[in-house]
Simulated assay, not measured.
Amino acid sequence: MYKLLIIEDDVMMSDMLSMYMSGEGYDIKQAENGEQGLKLLEQFGPDVVLLDLMLPDWDGIELCGRMRQHSSVPIMIVSMKSEVSERVQALRAGADDYLCKPFSMHELSARVEALIRRSRLMQAAAAESRTAEAADTAAEKEIKLDSERRLLLVRGNFVETTFSEFEIMKLFLTHPGKVFSREDLINAIRGFDSFVTDRAIDVHIVNLRRKVEKNPKEPHFIRTVWGVGYKYVIEDESAPQ
């Protein structure tokens, strides 16, 4: 159940909004002034705020800005003020939507749903981004290239490599998640006139796993893509291969 905070000093309007949105399945809290609204914002943790601009103790625009400093909750202004300048000020203060009174309850409900949907998508995207950043940071700490000395830094320790091993790891680290065929890896090592064989690539992979994996028999970073080739991963995509 989503939570809705109504900050409205007109008791009749507030009760009407509360009654309708409760019928739509929302958990409702009502505040008659700005101070009450700020307290409920922290205590109640709403998914959406409906905010009137004309309150007895706060200017609605200033209150909107104050709320935005402390919370990313979607804020919809509901106001008798219909001037463009008022809407612009409210949006610049951090409001996400603006609905002029009188309005249709059906439209209000649809807009609240849209705000929640957008908020959830943004939260999911932010969480995914944080996960990816954490994975990138973790992988970076695990394995890095020292191009000047052509060495691998594996969990804080320098590891020597052959020319071919270094070039393969450079390709892997530059394109995490990309699947490389044996032919791709051959070309990366010697070029298109290569005399290196598929079997030689498999040997290089075995040697690299010994150098970078905690358990070479159950590789985490250098994965086999059966029937295709190999890829380098920085997350737990599946069971070790």
Rank of each mutant, 00 (worst) to 15 (best):
D193C: 07
P176E: 04
R68T: 15
I189W: 06
F221D: 04
S22R: 12
A93L: 09
M21I: 10
R68P: 05
S104F: 10
Q43M: 13
D96N: 15
Y26A: 05
L5N: 05
D202R: 06
L51F: 00
E35A: 11
E83N: 10
H106L: 14
H70F: 15
Y26M: 05
D198M: 12
D97R: 02
S104C: 10
A125G: 06
F158K: 02
F192L: 09
A135H: 09
K144Y: 01
K231H: 12
V203T: 13
K214N: 07
V196D: 12
A114P: 05
F221Y: 13
I7G: 02
N33M: 04
P74M: 14
R111C: 12
D59G: 09
R150P: 03
N33R: 14
A135V: 07
R199F: 13
R111H: 07
Q43N: 11
G229I: 00
I189R: 00
E165T: 02
R68E: 13
L208G: 02
L153E: 06
E32T: 11
E213R: 02
N157M: 14
V212C: 01
M1T: 11
F172S: 05
E8M: 08
V179F: 01
E218T: 15
S82V: 11
L208R: 00
A114D: 13
G94K: 10
W58A: 11
F221I: 03
H175A: 12
K81S: 09
L173C: 01
R111Y: 15
R117V: 14
Y2D: 12
V11T: 14
L108E: 00
L185V: 00
I28Q: 02
L41P: 04
E107K: 07
R209T: 02
F158V: 06
